[in-house]
Design a protein around this nucleic acid. Structure first.
Ligand SMILES: [Mn+2]
Ligand SMILES: [Mn+2]
Ligand SMILES: [Zn+2]
Ligand SMILES: [Zn+2]
Lengths: 154, 154
DNA sequence: TTAGTAAGTGAGAACCATTCCAATGTAACT
DNA sequence: AGTTACATTGGAATGGTTCTCACTTACTAA
């Protein structure tokens, strides 16, 4: 469940974006703000089951699509067939395990400069009017390295 | 249709990867090598219709998945609902139009260094054993800028 | 405070890209 | 040429996402 502070913060975020404040939107956004597990729609429905026992799947999809349109949330595919969602409060990118699908956040000092530089170069070379980017790095997560016998469990 | 040189090149690529050389694989790979339009499965089936009039959809999917497994081809989503495929002979990344879905190739001198640096930092920070990355930049393509009245058609 | 209204919700049907299946065909090796 | 493991095919199945529409609700302007 989301803390009082998170509920206030998300209420303000919805208002700032001129989105109608419905219980569904408020609770789903609060869930995303307080969980960084890159959940699927199914995971989100389970996660908000206490507060929204009868929320429709279409409502969750509609809500998330609205958040994506307003750039509050980003979509991620990790190859397991369903879309994952991520509240994007602070800039970061993702490392995705090619074996188990685990998604972890990554950032480092200077990442923002790398990003800006990539966008600037892209604008010059392509003529596109840039609005954003996605960077993902693929590999085996530490657990899968052990599981597959590639790295010893020290 | 693919040139003789492309047919020889792709034949060798299949052999190098120890893939059985079937007409379907040979022709589909040749199509991808000689078309940089980031086609969907439907586009590919149309494109090889002359040489493979009765190719099954499942064969195209199987073939492409095999190529992806062997890192010959990468998958791209541009939000239009179906997957796009790209022969990845030379490293580059993509600018994707958020309005019409157009995908264009981008690269610049030093891009490879940016990539390597990102992968190295990611390995250090996440513990993942890195095998690759995807970088995408989003924005409005020049045509859509004009179409939407954001840029004047000079 | 109270309509009035545009927008959001929910259950289920529909959609459709992709995968699965079982039968048939074939590339590669001997 | 014979063997065999693998590839191809068309059709059925799958399943994540969108659509439909009757109902409800959050905002707004008297
Ligand atoms: Mn994240
Ligand atoms: Mn490309
Ligand atoms: Zn893993
Ligand atoms: Zn465009």
């Amino acid at each position: 469940m989301a803390s009082n502070a998170v509920m206030e913060e998300t209420l303000q975020v919805l208002k700032d974006h001129k989105l109608r404040v419905t219980p569904q939107r408020h609770i789903i956004l609060a869930y995303l703000v307080s969980h960084h597990n890159h959940p699927t729609v199914e995971t989100i429905r389970d996660g908000v089951g206490k507060e929204l026992p009868n929320v429709g799947a279409s409502t969750v999809y509609n809500t998330l699509n609205t958040f994506v349109d307003h750039h509050l949330v980003v979509e991620l595919q990790n190859g397991d067939g369903s879309t994952h969602y991520d509240y994007f409060g602070t800039p970061h990118y993702h490392a995705i395990c090619t074996n188990c699908g685990r998604i972890v956040d990554v950032t480092y000092p200077g990442f923002s400069d790398t990003e800006k530089s990539l966008e600037k170069k892209t604008a010059e070379l392509s003529g596109y009017m840039i609005s954003g980017n996605h960077m993902e790095v693929y590999g085996l997560c530490p657990e899968c390295q052990i599981k597959l016998g590639i790295k010893n469990n020290e």
